[in-house]
């Protein structure tokens, strides 16, 4: 897991300014609206691991939007979250091609054997559903802390959890 920086309003402001400048440089007048918003959200989340509540008024002010506008956008996209995920993030593909290779059994196994339901987590691991990782011929596919895995079956899930639980938190 890449280490997330603690929230820092000055650094956040710099990241936001950089994305706004980039949008205006590329899109000219067209880039004056909210078009930097998604790049800003990605940049902040990449840096701080999540989008803390303090980020909202800052983004809104810089883009001349209301806080509700910003909240509306970030809540629309599955990628953005306002709380720091616990431990390793496992995104298990639940789409059709992986279903054909048993991803539903893996999900059931994670719940029954490890008490993990999508959207929840433990100290070691946060489980999320994802719909297609583009590895559809080698499923079930999973992203483990952003690293793509093929053939993520029940045994692979057990091995991952054993490794996480064996490792110091």
């Amino acid at each position: 897991m890449s280490a997330a920086a603690p929230w820092n309003i000055r650094l956040a402001g710099e990241l936001i300014a950089a994305e706004i400048d980039a949008a205006r440089a590329f899109y000219g007048d067209d880039g004056e609206g909210a078009t930097a918003l998604l790049p800003i959200l990605h940049a902040l989340q990449r840096t701080f691991g999540h989008l803390p509540a303090d980020a909202l008024p800052l983004i809104a002010e810089r883009l001349n939007l209301s806080r509700a506008d910003v909240r509306g956008v970030l809540s629309f996209y599955h990628d953005f979250h306002d709380a720091m995920p616990g431990g390793c993030v496992l995104k298990l593909c639940r789409a059709e091609a992986c279903q054909a290779l048993g991803s539903e059994r893996v999900a059931e196994h994670l719940e029954v054997a490890h008490g993990l339901r999508p959207g929840t987590g433990t100290r070691e691991l946060t489980l999320q559903n994802v719909y297609c990782l583009g590895n559809c011929a080698l499923g079930p596919a999973a992203l483990v802390d952003n690293e793509l895995h093929a053939g993520f079956d029940e045994q692979a899930a057990d091995a991952l959890l054993a490794r996480l639980r064996g490792a110091p938190a």
Partner: peptide, 29 residues
Amino acid sequence: DIDVRVGGGAYICGEETSLLESIEGRRGQ
């Protein structure tokens, strides 16, 4: 020149008008 825009994990943004909304910094409706 070409810019790269990264989506936010929303399937609907593969629909062309919702994709345009997303580039413009809005909900992908």
